[in-house]
Measured scan of single mutants.
Amino acid sequence: QVNIAPGSLDKALNQYAAHSGFTLSVDASLTRGKQSNGLHGDYDVESGLQQLLDGSGLQVKPLGNNSWTLEP
């Protein structure tokens, strides 16, 4: 069960990665100043990332080996 409060997208993504045990490689300029609506409930990694990114204009991309990145 994930419980991440709304706020900074950077912070939300870092909390989610730490909670879910995956690696997220992101260029900080992509997420700077963006906000997230947070995340509450049970999600697989990709669904949770998509939910956190909702409205940010960013997309999640798998890199393999439980690693992910973001792209515009």
Rank of each mutant, 00 (worst) to 15 (best):
Q1L: 13
Q1W: 15
Q1M: 14
Q1G: 12
V2K: 03
V2I: 11
V2N: 03
N3A: 09
N3W: 11
N3H: 14
N3M: 11
N3L: 10
I4M: 01
A5C: 13
P6L: 04
P6H: 05
P6D: 02
G7I: 04
S8M: 09
S8N: 10
S8F: 08
L9K: 00
L9N: 01
L9P: 01
L9W: 01
L9C: 04
D10N: 07
D10V: 09
D10W: 14
D10K: 07
K11M: 12
K11Y: 13
L13W: 00
N14C: 15
Q15K: 07
Q15S: 09
Q15N: 07
Y16V: 02
A17F: 05
A17M: 09
A18N: 10
A18S: 10
A18Q: 12
H19E: 14
H19K: 12
S20L: 15
S20Y: 15
S20K: 15
G21F: 06
G21Y: 04
F22D: 05
T23V: 11
T23H: 12
L24V: 09
L24K: 05
L24S: 05
S25H: 15
S25P: 03
V26W: 15
V26G: 08
V26H: 10
V26Y: 15
D27E: 09
D27V: 06
S29D: 12
S29T: 11
L30R: 00
L30A: 04
L30D: 04
L30Q: 04
T31V: 14
T31D: 03
R32N: 09
R32H: 12
G33K: 04
G33N: 10
K34D: 03
K34V: 08
K34E: 06
K34S: 02
Q35K: 13
Q35C: 15
Q35R: 13
S36E: 01
N37Y: 09
L39N: 00
L39V: 06
L39G: 01
H40A: 10
H40V: 14
G41I: 03
G41Q: 02
G41N: 02
D42R: 13
D42F: 15
Y43T: 03
D44R: 05
D44E: 08
V45D: 03
V45W: 12
V45P: 07
E46D: 07
E46S: 08
E46V: 13
S47P: 04
S47E: 12
S47N: 08
S47Y: 09
G48I: 06
G48H: 04
G48Q: 02
G48T: 03
L49N: 00
L49V: 01
Q51N: 07
Q51P: 00
Q51K: 14
L52D: 00
L52E: 00
L52A: 02
L53W: 00
L53E: 00
L53A: 06
L53R: 00
L53D: 00
L53C: 07
L53Y: 00
L53I: 13
D54C: 15
G55R: 05
G55D: 03
G55A: 05
G55I: 04
G55W: 03
S56N: 04
S56M: 09
G57T: 02
G57P: 00
G57M: 04
G57K: 04
Q59F: 10
V60Y: 10
V60T: 06
K61I: 12
P62C: 13
P62L: 10
P62A: 14
P62N: 14
L63I: 11
G64Y: 03
G64M: 03
N65P: 13
S67L: 11
S67D: 08
W68Q: 05
W68I: 07
W68C: 07
W68F: 14
W68R: 04
T69I: 12
T69V: 12
T69E: 09
T69D: 06
L70K: 03
L70D: 04
L70C: 08
L70E: 04
E71V: 14
E71W: 06
P72M: 11
